[in-house]
């Protein structure tokens, strides 16, 4: 019961952040609303009893990705000006596409047969995660490191072109 109320509150917070991203006039304020959304998603992870993911969400998304976005925005446009037009020229088409996507997601959400597990989430998730990463999923784990390496080198090459 209390978790239901908490979930509704956190979901509203996330949605408010998302709406703020779209409606804000200045790009920096959009980035701030995006951070609000990230914090909301972290709260949802907590409610799903995945505290490790919640911490990772805050650490990586709010601490790293949001900072990256803000730096990138500051590099590419005149940060101090506030004139972003409210509607761009493609708002009609975009609105129709968004409505179609929304109806589709609603249909999937309500009609599909989601399997519900009756097992309780394990108590010690972090240790289980570590064992899984080193045991069953070691290949994706090593591939992930190669992936990160490629991202790092590629981004440095692209960003340094003068």
């Amino acid at each position: 019961m209390i978790t239901q109320i908490a979930f509704i509150g956190i979901a509203l917070l996330t949605l408010a952040g998302a709406i703020g991203v779209v409606l804000a006039r200045s790009v920096f304020v959009s980035a701030l609303f995006l951070i609000l959304s990230f914090v909301g998603v972290s709260g949802i992870y907590v409610l799903l009893e995945a505290p490790f993911l919640a911490g990772v969400q805050l650490l990586v998304y709010v601490g790293a990705v949001a900072v990256l976005i803000i730096f990138a925005v500051m590099l590419t446009r005149d940060m101090m000006s506030e004139e972003t037009p409210f509607l761009n020229r493609q708002w009609g088409c975009g609105g129709v596409m968004a409505a179609v996507l929304f109806v589709l997601l609603l249909l999937i959400g309500f009609i599909a047969d989601w399997p519900v597990s009756s097992a309780k989430p394990p108590e010690d998730t972090i240790s289980a995660l570590g064992e899984a990463l080193m045991g069953k999923y070691v290949l994706p784990f090593e591939v992930a490191s190669v992936f990160l390496l490629v991202a790092l080198i590629g981004a440095i090459v692209v960003a340094r072109e003068r």
Binding site: F52, V56, L59, V60, G63, A64, V65, V67, L68, F71, A72, M74, L75, I126, S127, A128, L129, G130, E131, L133, M134, G135, F141, A144, S145, L148, A151, L152, A155, I156, A159, R160
Partner: peptide
């Protein structure tokens, strides 16, 4: 500034992988 933030993102994700490994280390 952007490059520093970028390298930080990559290493941050690396530490995210390091923590479960460190916690489960005694069992592996």
């Amino acid at each position: 500034y952007y490059i520093y933030a970028l390298i930080f993102v990559i290493f941050d994700i690396e530490t995210v992988f390091l923590y479960p490994w460190a916690v489960a280390y005694n069992k592996l």
